[in-house]
Amino acid sequence: MGKVNTIQDTENEIVEEFGLFDSWDDKYEYIIDLGKRLPPLDDKYKVDENKVRGCQSTVWLHADYKDGYIYFSADSDAVIVKGLISMLIRVLTNHTPDEILNAKLEFIDRIGMTKHLAQTRSNGLLSMVKQMKNFALAYKLKMESNGN
């Protein structure tokens, strides 16, 4: 399958959408809305090894691999974090491990999120990115060893 949109395309879309908002109140309302609309994660995936470390709230991240593409799903008990994951998923899901590993994810900086979130919370965001890339790396290595 795979998406027509590149990771960069989706990043640009998000930056454009955020450009429509005048204030951070509006941006947060949008993120909260994204969080509320994130499809629920099956309870069977809410296990310790899917927990993202470095977050003040509990975040679970799950990845499926099918025909060369990775599909992410996630949940959190905090809604803003859920909104942030929702954006990360929108950018990274349905891409190959290589595409995910090479993603620069500059949109996080470009929408002002790294600067706006306190360092500790920003770290939580970076932890999520790291975990998504770890999934990609794991699948990549698995596929390579299967291929040999």
Partner: peptide
Amino acid sequence: HPQDIGILLD
């Protein structure tokens, strides 16, 4: 969640 409260108060 307290974290949401903290972010929005900040």
